[in-house]
């Protein structure tokens, strides 16, 4: 097999720059803009349009920054197009770390709330969502193998 032929062959990540990978690379920026629109609608519904406009501008700005940075950063590009297995692994570990951090913060806040005479319900349901999501994910992932 010649060098040219081999260079054209792709590894498990598939060929670079396919239409599918370009579309995948737009998911995070589009979700960012969608969250901004949700902020706008929430601000408008709650009578705080300034908050809504600020939230939309912030999240749209984040989407633009991500799209601009991905041309210079392999890490950002990998996080957006999801094709690099090492970046995906790093993303999974970082997500797990962030999740554990949030759960620990919720538990601490719940305990402090109870200790100061509150009912802690606002933290209890957050903790419950985290616990149910974890158990649900365990079951699904276990079944899928």
């Amino acid at each position: 097999m010649t060098r040219t032929q081999r260079t054209e062959s792709a590894g498990p990540g598939g060929p670079k720059g396919t239409g599918a990978s370009r579309l995948t690379g737009l998911v995070t920026p589009l979700v960012s803009v969608a969250i901004g629109v949700a902020y706008l609608l929430a601000g408008w519904a709650g009578g705080d349009l300034v908050f809504g406009l600020f939230g939309l501008a912030l999240m749209t700005g984040l989407a633009v920054v991500l799209l601009l940075i991905r041309r210079r950063s392999e890490t950002v590009k990998g996080l957006l197009d999801r094709r690099d297995e090492r970046i995906n692994t790093i993303d999974l570990r970082a997500t797990a770390f962030a999740g554990v951090t949030v759960i620990v913060a919720v538990i601490i806040a719940f305990v402090v709330e109870i200790a100061t005479g509150g009912d802690g319900s606002q933290y209890a349901w957050l903790g419950a969502v985290g616990g149910v999501a974890y158990i649900g994910a365990l079951i699904v992932l276990r079944i899928r193998g």
């Binding site: 792709a10 590894g11 990540g13 060929p15 670079k16 890490t75 094709r83 690099d84 090492r86």
Partner: peptide
């Protein structure tokens, strides 16, 4: 970079 392109991963990987 060339090997990374052929494998569909980043040069860092």
């Amino acid at each position: 970079a060339a090997l990374a392109a052929a494998m569909g991963v980043s040069r860092q990987t």
